[in-house]
């Protein structure tokens, strides 16, 4: 069952490693805290495309869609 925690775990394990940020709530702003940077977003997109069997268009790579775990979840599960 793919749910929000899959995204949360990935971000904590892959994108927060080595960064001075502790804990991750689903509403935390990932961009302002620097958890997702310009390279991190590309790694995250590859993960989301692979794990949620979706193709993400470049046009959708706007900050609103990646601001928090909640926002990412809403984005990958939209119709």
């Amino acid at each position: 069952m793919k749910d929000k925690t899959l995204i949360q775990q990935f971000i904590m394990n892959e994108l927060m490693r080595g960064k001075n940020v502790s804990g991750l709530e689903v509403t935390d702003n990932l961009i302002e805290t620097g958890v997702i940077d310009s390279l991190g977003i590309q790694i995250l997109i590859s993960f989301l495309e692979r794990n949620f069997s979706i193709a993400i268009a470049d046009e959708d790579l706007i900050p609103d869609n990646f601001e928090s775990v909640d926002a990412i979840w809403a984005f990958v599960t939209r119709d």
Binding site: S38, I41, Q42, D58, E59, L61, I62, P63
Partner: peptide, 13 residues
């Protein structure tokens, strides 16, 4: 070109 904040996506593409 694109929306405000679309710069990184355009640059990466």
């Amino acid at each position: 070109l694109g929306g405000e904040g679309a710069g990184a996506a355009i640059f990466n593409s």
